[in-house]
Amino acid sequence: MSSITMEILKNIEIGKPRQHKNMTIHPVCYRGPAGPDYISLDVALEVKEVVITEVSEGGNVPDLALKNNAQSAVLILDGEELQGAKQNRVLNTTIMVAAGEQMTVPVSCTEQGRWSYSSREFSSTEHVMRHDVRSRKMKSVHASLSEGRGYASDQMKVWENIRMMAAESGVSSPTSAMSDTFLKHREEVDAFVSAFAVEENQAGLLAFIDGKLAGCDFVSRPQVYAGLHAKLLRSYAVDAVVAKPRRMTKEGSVPAGDPVADFLAAMAQCKEENLNRWAWGRMSGFSGRI
C-alpha cells in the first residue's frame, strides 16, 4: 500500500450514519497532523483577502488569476464554483495558495452561454460541483496529467454533463449555467443541509445516495471543514433530489452490508501517484512554488 493511502487509512475515522430521504451521510474525522495553518476560500473572499479575476481583459477559459493577500494560506477545493467575471468556473484541482502568493489557477467553464463581464472579480457560490460531474472531471484531469498536458479537463464533457444535469432537472438556463440547476432545487437541497448538521470534530463526509457510494471528502482541520460542510453536502444533495425519479428506487433506501468497510477496502486497493506541482506548473505555464 502506498504512503499517503496508508497515512489516510491510519488517521481516518468514519462515524455513525445519519439518513435523510435517500441520502446517507457518515461524518468523517481526521486524526492526522493538520499541516500548516490555512483558511477556506469563502473566508478569504468574504474579507476580500483573495482576489480572483480573469487572467487578462480578454480572458482565457481554462485559466484564472488569483492573488492571496491574506496572512495565511488559502485552501481551494477541486470543484468549488466561482461566479462572475466573463463566465462561471470550477477549480480543476485542490490548491493551497501561500500567503502573499499570486498565481494562475486551472479551471473549467460551468456557464457555456456567457462570455461577457458580469463583474470584475469572482465571488464564491454556495456549492461545489455535483459529485458525479466532479468525478468525471477529475478523471479527465488525471488523463491530462498523465499525458503531460497539465491540469486541463475535458471541457466538452464538462458542458455535456452540465446539460445532462439541467435536462434531468427540467432546467432551461439562459446561459447554460450549472448554478441554475442548484438554484432550481434550492429548497429541497437546503432541507438535506438542515438534516445533516455538522458534528463536533467532523472534518469530512462519506456520502451514499440510494444505497450506493457517492463520494468522500475531508480536510485536515475541523474548523475549516465547518465552513465547507454545507457546500459539499449540496454537491451530493442536488443529485439525491433528482435520483428518485431517475433510478426508480424507493425513498429512504440505505446502503446494504458494511459499506464503510467496502469503501476503506477500495481505498486501500488504489494505486497512488505523487506529482511535483512545481514541475507541472513549469510545463503548463502556471506560476507558484511548492
Binding site: L145, G215, A266
Partner: peptide, 26 residues
C-alpha cells in the same frame, strides 16, 4: 498533488509539508 486510481475508486489528495490537508474519493 497525489492521484489515486483503483478498480472501484478514483481520488486525489493534497499533501503539504508531508501532511494530507484534503482528500476526495469517488
Amino acid at each position: 498533488d497525489v492521484r489515486f486510481l483503483g478498480q472501484d475508486l478514483i481520488g486525489s489528495a493534497l499533501a503539504v509539508e508531508g501532511e494530507t490537508v484534503h482528500a476526495a474519493f469517488f
